[in-house]
Design a binder for these strands. Sequence first.
DNA 1: ATTCAACACCGAATCGTTTCATGCTACCCT
DNA 2: AGGGTAGCATGAAACGATTCGGTGTTGAAT
Lengths: 325, 325
Amino acid sequence: MATIREVAKLAGVSPATVSRVMNGTANVDDDKKNRVLEAIEKTGFQPNQLARALFKNSSRLVGLIVPNIDNPFFGELSRKIEEEAFKRGYHIVLCSSGNNSEKELSNISMLSRMKADGIILITNGEHTGQMIKETDLPVVVVDRHMTDGGEIAYIESDHYTGGVLAAEHLYECGCRKIVCLRGPQEYASGRLRFKGYQDVCRKYGLEEMYIDTAYTFEAGLKSAELLLEKYPEADGIFAANDIVAISTYKVLKNHKIKVPKDVKLVGFDDIRFSSLMTPELTTIRQPISKMGELAVEIICNYAEGKPYDTACILGVELIKRETTK
Amino acid sequence: MATIREVAKLAGVSPATVSRVMNGTANVDDDKKNRVLEAIEKTGFQPNQLARALFKNSSRLVGLIVPNIDNPFFGELSRKIEEEAFKRGYHIVLCSSGNNSEKELSNISMLSRMKADGIILITNGEHTGQMIKETDLPVVVVDRHMTDGGEIAYIESDHYTGGVLAAEHLYECGCRKIVCLRGPQEYASGRLRFKGYQDVCRKYGLEEMYIDTAYTFEAGLKSAELLLEKYPEADGIFAANDIVAISTYKVLKNHKIKVPKDVKLVGFDDIRFSSLMTPELTTIRQPISKMGELAVEIICNYAEGKPYDTACILGVELIKRETTK
DNA sequence: ATTCAACACCGAATCGTTTCATGCTACCCT
DNA sequence: AGGGTAGCATGAAACGATTCGGTGTTGAAT
């Protein structure tokens, strides 16, 4: 692989001139410019990105840490993030943390040694707050509001309003025994969605009924069974997210309970599969595209010294489909 | 951020000695070693990965190019690849190509300038063969057999046997009017799966019936409608992949056709949702984990000068579930 | 006691790019 | 014509870790 020095020698100029021609960073005599371009053509010279990054102390790499990339919600988010980053000339280093703090730490440290320009962090890890504080990289936290500082910005949906919309919709559909399969209360998303549900119940004088669950398929199956045991009178279910809603549907079906005739069902997220399943799932749509774009925008603006937002709470939307018809 | 020189000065040794202590690349006097470790501790020194990579001409980065990361099949594969790479001390640069040749080319070129150690390519791009030939990086192609050279290895499932297994299973379930929703014939996967189906039809003297489709949800919906129009007598359907199978189920349901009572349905891939949907989908399982592990293993072995496999055809497995009960 | 081998360590060069601080030339204006 | 200046080109230094060649010291063997 040719180096800038070889190109310079071939064109009869200094390496500095070659650099200028390549980056358009200063005017160069037309004659020399042409000779340089010719030499680049002839040698097939490609600048070594590592050398460039070493000097600039910036690799144009952005770390993306997700719990697991095979979760559709994170998959869709990652896609948007990659697209947006590419548009801006950055590339994504993918880290699937599996909620393993040790691996997360190792990745953050690696990204720092690599002079990444920032980290987009989507995680529920326990010790992550500490890690963020210790790294010198700018961090944008998505889908979780950290209170213990360290990050430069956070992005999340309006979970509370989502909870309200879901419960209101079930009420409007005639449900009076609405059960909430509520997500982990240590996460803002779980707390706020539940709070929205609660406030609607109080507004209409409905009994608050809930079962604790996690954001996974397995947890969904288990807690749906529990729900039927504890609240057999339920006529509406607000699931923690779409994955849980989908597994809940499975359990209902196994028990010969008809959806939406006997029980109406609402999810959260609007992952792609919500509209692919049969029946199609009513859900609260998070603006996944918007979230991804914003995350990248904030990191890039920070890296380039431009002003950036430090807190974004994005609106959600009720998507009415077959499970509440 | 401290540099190796500062650490050296603080410990009263040369940078070379610090390097040796850090990498265990030679014996160092215990006394000095301790002083160095202490200095590292005190300064919080972290070696600059870019400088290291520049010297070694290897960044320990592996490029992963997928058509779209939000497709569950690729999501699951990516997860495995990331995990395996992490275990070996490599990191993944994610590129979602969207089957856009220009973007793919740009990414490949970037990875080369970045001194990535290899590329794992999962794509159906048209001009990709040419690109592979032009790059100096080792490339492993997954899920598509290139014939025009350039790559160091390819990995694919035994699509033909998958086709046979699917058709045989439908026959055993009593189907005699089996329709194949066949995938793109320009891809080996599409051709071979169809070939397997064909051979089974010939073996039992069944009529060959097929509709062309693509590996997407939208195409699945359209071709399933076409299928019902053209072959209303169908009692078994072998779909191009799970996505197509899922959309086919939707169409059948809309037409009040019962699965598996009226029509039995088999997919291909065994993505996670196959067992999450209701009814659960019978399908041909591709060994996604194995594929991911192998891809990384090959790239790493190549990068480290160890022997590596150049062609892997992996076995598939029939997973019987509710859509053929 | 002398020689030689083994070992630890340092200084310097290297990787390929960018930038800084000059140097040089040529031109213009007075 | 001479001085000032603008503009372009360039050499050298810098970025930070690694490795190589070489020097100095120690210890053992003869």
